[in-house]
Design a protein around this nucleic acid. Structure first.
Lengths: 156, 156, 156, 156
DNA sequence: TTTT
DNA sequence: TTTT
């Protein structure tokens, strides 16, 4: 039985194509950012938007799903927990902190059933080479070139 | 209608007596930390606890409630949103980040009926002087010295 | 300061066009249903989907937003609280219960870029008469016939 | 990857001692209620409390934890999902509905490290015989009669 | 820095 | 760095 709760719920847009790496163990790790925005009234009574960027991390199966289906601009719902890592910066010797959300659950809302589509290539063809390679075990070309990904196309 | 969601739910214990300051406007700001812990199996298959510390901030009425009723060791439920502030460190010139949870809702679960009671003093008598001063506009001595704060004692 | 928490988070699809009524006071009330589904393994080890239908209620401004922008099939994120009403059934004399989610926050995720568009009518032209009348103060025809509603169209 | 979200968070007090039964399979099922209350202003501008009762269900290990550690009056945090069962009432032939929260996570906040203690009996000695029997595989008398249950006493 |  |  848990004695505490550390829960985060975010719904926002992915800032850029996720970066997915594989640990020596073969386990996947995904890093991505999502933006949320809130509307508030400034001192002059004008409505302003403030954007907040969140660093997300996913492991294993979730990281693989992200590699295969999440890309820049997608709208995402996630549940996770907050974790702050700290280390001593080697050059300055200062203590540094980085707060990340470890993803537990993920719902892809992106939609538009597509992607940045354009260009002469397929799905994320324009991604960095490392990203390209990561996707080599991803969806087949038939899938990635379709104009719309439906639920039936997604094997989970 | 919101277009995104940025929500945090934490339930944990307060690390030390909250610090409450007043802005020139007279508006209160409270800073406090709470710990959550999760249990996980280490590589050797042993159960380990990992503690996560969260920096919380509250404003206005919520900050005043915190000043008056929250202290070190209390168990707290909060809802809030994540906010990361960044600035350039004056000495090192480096970019620094600090992630905080802005408290929206708060439920005080502590009690223990309550307080570290003991000692020769009352409620928080042993707090730092700054904390002591902050409480000077808090509950009356009659209240703070009682051995149990009941709901009837709390005017909100 | 709250002493308890009653919070619901749902993300699912709207079952049919919402019904919106106006109280004598002129205040709007919206009723709608959304479906969530969970995947579970049955006794035979096969994956099954179970759909859960939720009765939602919104008031005032939120009800008006729903009237104007939410329709059958839309994907919706909502935060709310659980409320169970009970009454004595007039014919059977039995105690009846109805559990509803009172919507606090709402994020419209639908889009699909969008709408059932087609048919001989516009946006929700086919709604029931009560619904039809309610929508008489809804979006203009120019808006409702557009093939895509963008944020720029939405005045909030 | 989930396509929807059905999540409930409740923090409130247990209405009476939970009822725990065992299925023929040996699997435990716990039923309990918790109350949440909200404060609102009535038409006369007076603050009123409205209490909402929630029907909770837990299975297996969680049900056993509830049997062993949760009792009337305890404060509980739970995460779960909403589920509505329906059936045809045998006598009236009417469709009946019952909405329940299936508990996923549970944090016992009860505290006071005790219980209704008093009386001439022990922990729940006054429970129904079925409840008594259910507890026969619960904590030992030494535990249940102790004036304070600490985490060290709890084997999870 | 908390808590059990 | 996102989105509308």
């Amino acid at each position: 039985m848990a004695k505490s709760v550390n829960k985060v719920i975010l719904l926002g847009n992915v800032g850029k194509d996720p970066e997915v790496k594989f640990l020596p163990s073969g386990s996947a790790v995904a890093n991505l950012t999502i933006a949320t925005s809130e509307r508030f009234k400034d001192k002059g009574g004008e409505w302003q938007d403030r954007t907040e960027w969140h660093n997300l991390v996913a492991y294993q199966r979730t990281a693989e799903i992200i590699r295969d289906y999440v890309k820049k601009g997608n709208k995402l719902y996630i549940e996770g927990r907050i974790q702050t890592r700290s280390w001593d910066d080697k050059t300055s010797g200062e203590k540094k902190y980085r707060t990340e959300i470890i993803i537990g659950e993920l719902v892809l809302l992106s939609g538009r059933g597509d992607g940045e589509s354009g260009g002469g290539g397929g799905y994320n063809r324009s991604s960095s080479s490392s990203s390209y390679d990561q996707r080599s075990s991803g969806p087949s070309d038939d899938l990635v070139n379709s104009t719309e990904i439906t639920d039936d196309d997604i094997p989970f």
